[in-house]
Design a protein around this nucleic acid. Structure first.
Lengths: 172, 172
DNA sequence: TATTGTTATACTCTATAACTATA
DNA sequence: TATAGTTATAGAGTATAACAATA
């Protein structure tokens, strides 16, 4: 859970210059100072707070494409691995297969993804992006890159790079 | 979303030696290799994966005290700031006040926390731990410290320390 | 028998809106 | 009128169990 944040400012038709407002906010410390005690010594707490903070910017930035983080991860992996099955996608991304079913229903309804019957195994589906899916993924990747540049600027290039290096390959 | 993980092994009466099983697992790479494409270059994705991984161990470790991460953060902060109001707690922890209401209902039902009418402001509640709450918090802190030691060992002391240093004080 | 996709259920957490009682 | 706490609702996301079709 991140610290306090003034009014999430539901973005609607706000221009790109306001897109990363949350990353500029100074949270906490409004009113009486609160003692966090041991919380700030827990890596899990700190990492959770920062994760929520990053995701808020990601969600806001990708809202233009109407794509949420989990949907983005599915689109990216299907795009890079056309024909993969739901079970392998589920395992790769750590999404429960029951949950993935509903996500794919939605993405299929929006004509971004297709489920084709596998030729080799009648039980499994081969997942593919549609033309629209490929186009939307390109847009989403561009927005995600914009988010990433902004995040890098907010954190400072050094800290950003260090975090990438320290976190890549985990859990191990 | 973390990568794949074999069967979460719902802990019930398993001994402490099995408590951190998840932190020892080698996830992913079971079956055909999947291309993660740009995902591993997104700090948000990496940090989310690690956060979920850490929380799974935290939840499993604190299950003995029947305390979830958000409940732990509330108990810790109320313990360190007796008399605080729900609104200041909500702002400090980034928990919606509507959500906090239901959490406090549950903690009050379990006689861990008390809501007392504030003398100075009839609208607000002064939050306090009960005797049982203080005792349970001590147990929870000990379990959390055990989790933290294990995490430190899994990550390596250097990486653990670097992450703490890089993440503390964020978002800023 | 085991696996893939599916449906269903329960619970946690987030986001909002609206209400009440106090200020 | 604003604020603190509350209730209610809708939607993500997680965790499980059970089922049909296929292997």
């Amino acid at each position: 859970m991140g610290r306090a944040r003034e009014k999430p400012v539901r973005r609607s038709v706000v221009g790109a210059q306001d897109r990363h407002a949350a990353l500029r906010r100074i949270p906490g410390e409004e009113g009486t100072a609160i003692d966090y005690d041991v919380l700030n010594a827990h890596l899990g707490y700190l990492i959770r707070r920062v994760q929520v903070w990053i995701f808020q910017d990601f969600i806001r930035t990708l809202a233009d494409a109407d794509i949420r983080p989990a949907q983005y991860s599915v689109m990216v992996v299907v795009g890079a691995n056309p024909g993969s099955s739901q079970i392998s996608l589920s395992q790769a991304l750590g999404i429960e297969r029951a949950r993935l079913v509903r996500m794919l229903h939605e993405l299929e309804r929006r004509r971004l993804i297709e489920r084709r019957r596998s030729a080799s195994d009648g039980r499994s589906h081969a997942l593919h992006l549609t033309g629209e899916g490929i186009a939307l993924l390109a847009t989403a990747k561009a927005l995600a890159a914009e988010h990433e540049r902004n995040l890098r600027q907010r954190l400072g290039a050094e800290r950003w790079q260090s975090l990438l290096r320290l976190l890549d390959g985990l859990p191990s």
